[in-house]
């Protein structure tokens, strides 16, 4: 377990997340893609804290901020899904035509 291997794993999770966020039609599946991206970033962040920052507590602090971002993303995402369903009866991105340029 070296820093490099953890970064490769994190990059793989991020890549899968990019694929999911771009390819999925369903809002929930799309959010899963975003979650995987944050997940990969968080993993690399913790690896950096553990292996490259000498265990300085600021690194963990940054990870806590990351988790806050994750929670914000989740709750606002679900709120928007609720709102989109109420107004447009939409459960997939294709049904939100007005946002299309």
């Amino acid at each position: 377990m070296t820093t490099e291997t953890v970064i490769v794993v994190g990059a793989a999770l991020f890549g899968i997340g990019v694929y999911g966020a771009l390819s999925q039609q369903s809002f929930v599946m799309l959010m899963m893609g975003i979650e995987l991206m944050i997940n990969g970033a968080l993993l690399v962040l913790v690896a950096m804290w553990s292996r490259a920052a000498g265990g300085s507590p600021d690194g963990q602090m940054l990870a806590v901020v990351f988790m806050t971002v994750m929670a914000v993303e989740m709750s606002l995402g679900f709120a928007l899904i609720t709102s989109a369903y109420r107004v447009k009866r939409a459960d997939i991105t294709e049904k939100l035509r007005k946002l299309k340029g």
Binding site: E4, I7, V8, G10, G15, L22, R51, G54
Partner: peptide, 22 residues
């Protein structure tokens, strides 16, 4: 997705990460 993975993994493997473990 593949580009993102390769680019990020490349950055990671390119080195330059300081070795200061906990």
């Amino acid at each position: 997705g593949a580009v993102a993975f390769l680019a990020l993994a490349g950055v990671g493997l390119a080195g330059g990460v300081p070795q200061r473990p906990v």
